[in-house]
Simulated assay, not measured.
Amino acid sequence: MWSALVVLSLVGCAVAGPPVTRSRKDIEAFRAYLERSRTDDGLRLESRMLANPKASAWENSGKFQGDILLNDKQAELLEQQYAGVAARNAYIWPNTKWPRNTVVYDFNNEFTHAQIIAIHSAMLEIEEHTCIRFRRKTILDRHYVRITGKPDGCYASLGYWKDIPVHILNLGKAEPGEGCFINSIIIHEWFHILGFLHMHSTYNRDDYVHLLWENMKPGYEYEFERFEYDVADNLDLPYEYASVMHYDRFAFSKNGRPTMLPIHTDYGLMGQLDYVTGWDWHRVNRHYNCPHAWSSEEHSDESYEHEYKVEENAAVEDGQEDLADDLPQEEVVEDLPQEELAPDTPQDFVAEKVSVVDN
């Protein structure tokens, strides 16, 4: 079953379409866009939210595709691919998975107790649903994720890079449940650390979403580039509107109108932030070759959650040895709400399918 994945796994990162030679003006504009996404423009997240209040906090964070913090090598490879100066297979990025499925992290000592609890809750939820483990940095660790609280947004480095010791996960400080401290946004940023791109970047996204270029902010059209199938592994899982990694309708809108609309019925779930889906967890498990992740080709959200329920409960009862020792004693991970968002179905499209789309 061919389907869409948002992972920069082994993963190449190539702009969709055959390699072509761009004009100097086009290349310079793309380079300027990449540099702009990597530069602190001094704007706080609150300012960007006022400019586009319908978009989510992570979409408004001023980085590549909203919240991806590119390193020098990633920016260079993206520019070369855009310019069409080399074969695409030169830009497959191997070894970007965290070794031994373990993410090493450290705090920047700038968060409140409640904020630390919220971050730990998201980490524990990832541990409960996947084989990923988190471990606090020691003096012997060279590679780790530094969790910071700069006010410019929610964003993260993409994947593990052995040549770059310090990876960044930034969460603009807010009350838990608000701004960057919405649980699903914290998990979204950890997914970038694990190597995942956004759902709308996949090679076959044009079969599932319709882009409204006329509503996009000038110069931000690059946020909607997609990646070719020959360098992105879809792990045989579906394109999913409800994925916690999917843009919503109003990302990078210049006029408050949608920039992206679902071609099939999404029941108002595209870009939802209420919960992480079963398919999201399954993508992580397959990407990191977790036990039993490849034993079945497809699951519904309900069957997937049921299948792993016993294992999750057992893990909680036994104690998460890697993370639990670092968690506050009062930490409790609650079930996330499964409610649907209000529909915003466009007039131009006919409802055909549900939020998880099988080909």
Score class of each variant (00 low, 15 high):
Glu128Ala: 14
Leu211Asp: 04
Leu10Trp: 12
Met199Ala: 05
Lys25Gly: 00
Asn204Leu: 07
Val276His: 05
Glu312Lys: 15
Val332His: 10
Ile147Glu: 03
Tyr208Ala: 03
Asp163Glu: 14
Phe252Gln: 14
Gly159Ser: 03
Ala122Val: 10
Tyr304Trp: 15
Phe64Pro: 06
Val85Arg: 07
Asn109Leu: 09
Ser61Tyr: 08
Tyr247Asn: 08
Phe252Cys: 04
Glu321Thr: 15
Pro343Asp: 08
Leu10Cys: 01
His210Cys: 06
Ser61Glu: 02
Ser243Ile: 05
Trp2Leu: 05
Lys63Arg: 15
Trp213Val: 11
Gly195Asn: 04
Gln272Asn: 13
Lys63Thr: 03
Asp40His: 07
Arg146Thr: 08
Ser47Trp: 04
Leu235Gln: 12
Asp301Pro: 06
Thr265Val: 00
Phe64Ile: 09
Tyr144Pro: 00
Phe30Ser: 03
Ala118Tyr: 02
Gly42Leu: 03
Ala232Phe: 01
Leu78Met: 13
Cys13Asn: 12
Val166Cys: 01
Tyr91Asn: 11
Ile186Val: 15
Ile263Gln: 01
Tyr304His: 13
Pro176Ser: 00
Pro262Gln: 06
Asp322Cys: 08
Ile185Val: 15
Asn60Arg: 14
Gly153Lys: 07
His299Leu: 03
Leu323Thr: 12
Phe181Tyr: 09
Cys13Trp: 14
Leu237Gln: 11
Ala75Leu: 08
Gly172Glu: 11
Thr112His: 05
Leu237Val: 03
Val103Asp: 09
Leu140His: 12
Asn108Arg: 06
Phe227Ile: 15
Gly172Tyr: 12
Ile92Asn: 05
Gly84Leu: 09
Ala4Lys: 12
Pro165Asn: 15
Glu223Ser: 10
Tyr222Asp: 03
Ile126Val: 15
Tyr304Gly: 03
Glu317Pro: 00
Glu28Gln: 15
Asp72Gly: 02
Glu223Asn: 15
Glu240Ile: 11
Phe191Ile: 04
Pro238His: 08
Asp230Arg: 10
Leu45Cys: 04
Gly149Phe: 12
Ser47Met: 11
Ser121Trp: 08
Val357Ser: 02
Ala118Ile: 13
Asp207Leu: 14
Cys154Phe: 03
Asn204Glu: 11
Cys131Gly: 02
Leu140Pro: 00
Arg38Gln: 09
Arg44Cys: 00
Asn108Val: 03
Gln81Thr: 11
Ser253Trp: 08
His306Asn: 11
Glu35Ser: 06
Trp2Gln: 07
Leu336Glu: 13
Val356Lys: 12
Arg257Met: 04
Cys131His: 06
Pro337Asp: 04
Thr21Arg: 15
Thr138Cys: 01
Arg38Val: 02
Asn95Leu: 06
Tyr155Asp: 02
Tyr160Val: 12
Glu35Ile: 07
Asp274Leu: 13
Cys290Trp: 09
Pro18Tyr: 10
Ala75Val: 06
Pro346Thr: 11
Ala314Phe: 04
Ile27Met: 00
His299Cys: 02
Ala16Cys: 12
Glu334Met: 10
Tyr267Lys: 14
Tyr229Met: 09
